[in-house]
Each structure stands twice: as structure tokens, then as C-alpha cells.
Simulated scan of single mutants.
Amino acid sequence: MIALVTFLTGLLFGLGLAVSEMTNPAIVLGFLDIFGNWNPSLVFVMGGAVAIGMLGYVIRNRRTKPWLADKWYVPTRRDIDKNLIIGSAMFGIGWGLSGYCPGPGLTALTNNPAEAVYFVGALIVGAGLFHFQNHRKNS
């Protein structure tokens, strides 16, 4: 049941990315170009995501445990450290340069594979380097 719900959630997420055109780098870059030819359409996508996220927290606060798990897994850290700042900056630079963030980058493999394959390859290498560096630091 967990696998089915996970699959359906991922499918819904991917469809949402496609329908909102977040898989189109030109739309995303137009949204990020606030001093040029700004395209504010993704504000509605983000607003919808925030609204659904808030609804999720309302549901969480009314239930003692999730439907398909033994406990809630909610982030507890609230500090802002150098890794958060550096990682956020790297994410933003990559998003601004490519027009892709990880979810839309993966979905773009189906509608723009010639371009997206480079992004996804770099994403995998970057994640691997982080894992290697983090594993080495914790050993």
C-alpha cells in the first residue's frame, strides 16, 4: 500500500510539474528574470504548493499518527548554518543557469532529453560528491 501511495503521489507531482510548465526552462527562467521580461505565472504554482503544505500541517496537527506510518517525520532543526546558506546558493545558481530544479529536471528527460540528460547527469554527480564528502567526514 505504501508503494502504491508513493507511486500515485509521484505521478501527481510529475503531472503537476508538467501542467504548470515547470518542466519548461524558458517559463522558469522567465519567472526568475524579475528585472527583465518577468513571467509571474509560477507564483500561482508556488502559492498552490504553500496552500497544500499548510493543509498538510493542519491535518498533521489533528492526527496522532499518519495513515501509513508509525510516526510523523517532521524536520526539527530551525538553525541556519553555513551548509544551508552555501547549499541554497548553489541550488539557486544551478536553477538560474539551467532553468531546472531536480524534479522538473527529471521529468524533462521525457520531453527534452537532449538537454535534460546533461542536467540529470550533473545532478547525479553532485549528489554523489556530497554523499562521498559527507560519508568521509562522518567516518
Score class of each variant (00 low, 15 high):
Y57N: 11
A51L: 13
S41E: 04
I59P: 12
L32R: 02
G48H: 03
G48V: 10
A26M: 05
M46K: 00
T64C: 08
T64A: 15
V28C: 03
V58C: 12
A49Y: 07
R63W: 04
I59K: 09
V45K: 09
R63K: 15
W72H: 13
Y57H: 14
F44V: 11
P66Y: 00
A49L: 12
N39R: 13
A26D: 00
V45G: 07
G36A: 02
D70R: 11
G36F: 01
R63Y: 07
L68M: 04
N39T: 00
V43F: 12
Y73N: 14
L29P: 00
G48K: 08
G53V: 01
K71S: 11
V43K: 14
I34W: 13
L55N: 01
L32S: 02
M46Q: 03
V43W: 12
G56M: 04
R63F: 01
F35A: 03
G30W: 06
R62A: 14
I34R: 07
D70V: 02
A49H: 06
L29M: 09
G30V: 04
V45W: 15
I59V: 14
I27S: 02
A26N: 04
G48D: 11
M54Q: 02
V58P: 08
L68Q: 06
P66S: 00
I27F: 10
I34P: 05
R60H: 11
G48I: 07
W67R: 14
F44S: 15
F44A: 14
F31Y: 09
G53Y: 04
W67S: 10
R62G: 10
G47I: 05
A49D: 06
S41N: 09
M46F: 13
W67M: 12
G53F: 00
V45T: 14
I59L: 13
G36K: 06
A49N: 01
G47F: 05
G48S: 03
V50K: 13
L55D: 00
L29T: 05
